[in-house]
């Protein structure tokens, strides 16, 4: 009974701290569900950064120029860094990197569904940088104010780097749109395939979102899925028009009264299908991560062996 009382007291104190916009730091008391909710969200975010390297890595060897290749490699390297910032933030909540990777491999932990779509042409690299990174930025900018300190700080670093990603993608699309008809068709085709999955990145509508209400109350999430999605649409439509691309949505129309674009219905059945493992590339993405992890084991073992040997040698000899 007494324990219950102090738990209730702790939770109230915790909530009032969050309400006062004070950041929560690793060693602070926090409700177990807050901790679990954060581990789920941050690790999902980290896995997304890392799995997202695959559709882009697919085109490094076939980038159209050496400059594009160097840019794409720099971007993919950034994604690996972002994964690390986020894994490190998740680890401050008392979970190990091994457990996090294991949860990814067993499917217990998810990653952004959009990376289960294939990157079929070079224009897809443009569309991913422009749309997928833009959508990620819209979300991540709002997360710079998330209540958990290490997560917020990781977001600040990531946002600084993401604007390069977004611009290089848009630049690829723009360049294609200034090219021959074949190239313009390729850019349009990429937009057609990536537009709707990009809208789905923001998750289910607010009313249907499983974790949203509690996450908003704890200020883990700062803006709702629908709010963020609307902001993305408003920005992206204008950017598409500026370079002559047509957004593949017959219901898309500017709503003077709302001051926003109205857009068509999202195919949530497709969303569910991909989230639950049956998108075009789910198995391939996961299998690749598992094999890269296993095939890299000898490197980790070699590093450990080297370190053990180095420690065994007396300092004056080494």
């Amino acid at each position: 009974m007494k324990d219950n009382m102090s738990l209730v007291g702790n939770e109230e104190k915790f909530q009032s701290k969050v309400d006062a916009e004070e950041k929560v730091e690793p060693k602070d008391w926090m409700p177990e569900k807050y901790r679990q909710n954060l581990i789920r969200q941050i690790s999902q975010h980290a896995h997304s950064e890392v799995i997202g390297e695959q559709p882009e890595g697919n085109w490094i060897s076939r980038a159209p120029t050496l400059e594009r290749k160097a840019i794409l490699m720099a971007k993919v390297q950034d994604e690996a860094g972002h994964g690390l910032y986020l894994y490190a933030a998740a680890e401050t909540l008392g979970i190990t990197r091994d457990e996090l990777i294991d949860r990814l491999h067993t499917g217990a932990s998810k990653y952004a569904s959009i990376f289960n779509y294939p990157s079929l042409t070079w224009a897809d690299i443009g569309a991913i940088g422009w749309l997928v990174d833009s959508a990620a930025i819209v979300n991540q900018v709002s997360l710079q104010n998330t209540s958990y300190g290490p997560y917020a700080r990781a977001m600040v670093k990531i946002c600084k780097e993401e604007s390069f990603h977004q611009r290089q993608g848009y630049n690829i699309m723009m360049t294609l749109m200034q090219g021959a008809e074949l190239q313009r068709d390729m850019a349009q085709d990429a937009l057609n395939r990536w537009w709707w999955p990009s809208l789905m990145m923001f998750g289910p509508h607010d009313a249907e979102s499983a974790h949203s209400a509690q996450s908003m109350k704890w200020k883990i999430k700062r803006r709702s899925n629908d709010e963020l999605r609307q902001q993305f649409v408003d920005q992206a439509v204008q950017q598409a028009q500026a370079i002559g691309l047509v957004v593949p949505d017959p219901d898309l129309v500017w709503n003077e009264q709302r001051g926003h674009y109205d857009f068509g219905a999202i195919d949530w059945e497709e969303f569910q299908r991909v989230v639950s493992g049956n998108g075009p590339c789910n198995r391939q993405r996961l299998a690749h991560h598992v094999s890269a992890h296993q095939e890299g084991a000898w490197v980790r073992e070699a590093m450990a062996a080297y370190e053990a040997k180095r420690r065994a040698v007396p300092a004056e000899v080494a």
């Binding site: 490190a88 700080r153 670093k157 590093m303 370190e307």
Partner: peptide, 12 residues
Amino acid sequence: HVGSLHADDAHQ
């Protein structure tokens, strides 16, 4: 302070 990482030794 900017963050943390895992490594085998300080040099790495």
